[in-house]
């Protein structure tokens, strides 16, 4: 894994659980970052995000007032967000595929299932920085390109915009 110096980055942690915020803060400080701000719910998180412009946001999914998914959508709003292309890492106990897809479609950059580990969080942050994906605006979607890998040899239909085969087209 690449060793990256995070010391100049500013982080925002949004989580309603104080213990979890402390754990995430401890890890991020351990990585070398000095500026870490916390919010205990989505609304406060959005307010801090708009006023302090953090470089990276780490948010929980399940929170009162509004969830991490709603927060992500607001931070990705081209018209009202202070930085709609900010990297967002979603930290959650929901590991089901439908949740990963929902997070991806809301514009989340990286998805991290609990239990959290130093290695896994570091890898997600480093990936946001070293391998940033282009941002795509298409239909109702605004977020990092959902295709992580491009295959120049791929000659099939575009799965997200067109039916894959005749059977699917008829259903």
């Amino acid at each position: 894994m690449l060793n990256v110096d995070f010391s100049q980055l500013r982080f925002l942690i949004v989580d309603d659980n104080a213990h979890m915020r402390r754990v995430v803060r401890t890890l991020i400080h351990g990585f070398g970052a000095r500026e870490v701000t916390e919010a205990e719910d989505g609304a406060t998180g959005l307010e801090i995000f708009q006023s302090t412009l953090p470089d990276i946001v780490v948010t929980d999914w399940y929170m009162p007032i509004f969830s991490g998914i709603e927060l992500t959508r607001m931070m990705r709003s081209e018209t009202s967000s202070a930085n709609p292309t900010v990297p967002i890492i979603m930290l959650t106990g929901h590991s089901e595929k439908k949740c990963v897809t929902e997070a991806r479609d809301a514009g989340v950059t990286e998805f991290l299932c609990k239990p959290i580990s130093a290695k896994a969080l570091y890898a997600r942050v480093a990936n946001c920085l070293v391998n940033p994906r282009p941002f795509i605006k298409a239909g109702g979607f605004y977020g990092p390109d959902r295709r992580r890998f491009s295959n120049p040899l791929y000659k099939g239909l575009e799965r997200r915009s067109e039916p894959q085969n005749e059977t699917e087209a008829q259903t």
């Binding site: 930085n83 570091y122 070293v130 940033p132 605006k137």
Partner: peptide
Amino acid sequence: YEIIQPKVDLRKKVKVVPSSQAGFDPIARA
């Protein structure tokens, strides 16, 4: 669709440290 360039290029704010550099192990520190 439209491809958007991020407002901030975070690569300018971080530096990759060679693995040979002694004492720099952020995961172990965390």
